[in-house]
Design a protein around this nucleic acid. Sequence first.
DNA 1: TCTGGGGTCCTAGGACCC
DNA 2: TCTGGGGTCCTAGGACCC
Length: 420
Amino acid sequence: MYALADCNNFFVSCERVFNPALNGRPVIVLSNNDGCAVSRSNEAKALGIGMGVPLFQVKDIVRKYKIAVLSSNYALYGDMSKRVHATLRQLAPAIEIYSIDEAFLDLRGLEHEDLGAFARRASALCLKNTGIPVSIGVAPTKTLAKVASKWCKNRPPMKGGYFLNSQEERERILRVTPVEDIWGIGRRFAKKLYENNVTTAWDFTQIPGEWVQKKMSITGWRTWKELQGEACIAFADHTPAKKQICVSRSFSKEIFDYEKLVEQVSLFTFMVCEKLRKQESVCSQAVVFVLTNRFKENVPQQVESRMVTFPVATSGTPEINQSVLRELSYLFRKGYGYKKAGVILSGILPRQAVQLHLYDTRDREKQDRLMQVMDEINTDMGPGTLSVATASTKGIRMSRQHLSPQYTTKWEDIPIVHCK
DNA sequence: TCTGGGGTCCTAGGACCC
DNA sequence: TCTGGGGTCCTAGGACCC
């Protein structure tokens, strides 16, 4: 049996923990640059604020209903996420962190317990320990656990936990679950399924497996089998190393100036190399890409990337930075307004697996020592204390006009509580 | 005016090898 | 007219996730 724990309206819930005045009110949390609504309280959902809707398109509703609007505060959400995961970890033999607001639990060994009660107890404990409401579904497969978690999400009498235990329950719930709500079925396949008169999860389980395999590939077929109760998606006990690492951002305003663009892209490179070293890896390829503002018609558009390959896999910021900036110089065009840029590292290998190169002239040992010292200083004295000279020292050009304090991670932001 | 960021997996097709 | 067989690796594009 598997459990899926899913935090309700996670970003909004994090904000509410530290600002209880937000309870009972419609609240939304925005994406970077205060662009789109990416987390919504139930009240905001009820007012028709869709997932991912640009703020400017709903500003009338926001004003009319006095919706509380917040910029995203990832330092806060990341820290709260860790706390929820720490609570869950105590409850089961193994945990798989699936995303910032979701985790699977392997319930092996707990078969003889009342798993419905277990789920409700786990949910209550998360709420008590962290202040975050969590919906926990238990079922024989991951996909069904997802269904079960969604099932108890907006049904308060279920107390945040549900065990999808019998064939009858499975059929009853799948019959009222729209096919597009299934984990693994996105917009495209949902459309295709509707065209074939498949509208519910139950309908989907009733179509021939060969059809699914042919039209939706092996991944769709797994989902199909998982809904029948046959587990096909393995439990991932430990987080595997990333095969690709990316840092990219949209800018609050288009950048026309080459030097300004270099500062930003260089900062992205610095950040992405830090991530790479953190997972103790090296990379053999770097891609830099730039995008103009696709929403502005009548201005010249450019969506382009360039790749560089390293003969010896590396994680050295200066080395990667140098190559990335050289490629950027080939991409840059005067008169173009760049709205977004990013750096992707791929060809990722464990640090120990580096193949040396016969004609390598770089002192790799020295470079590694330098990076180690730089990382240590930045850990001790704060991010960005040491960087590369080409990188912006003023951070990323983003706007976050509704930012809440970093209640849990930044000393100056921790509110002072006056006791009577 | 304003439109997010970071990932994974699968498949088909091309380049190349002997 | 007829035009080998078997394989690997890489990439782009399409699908999905939160």
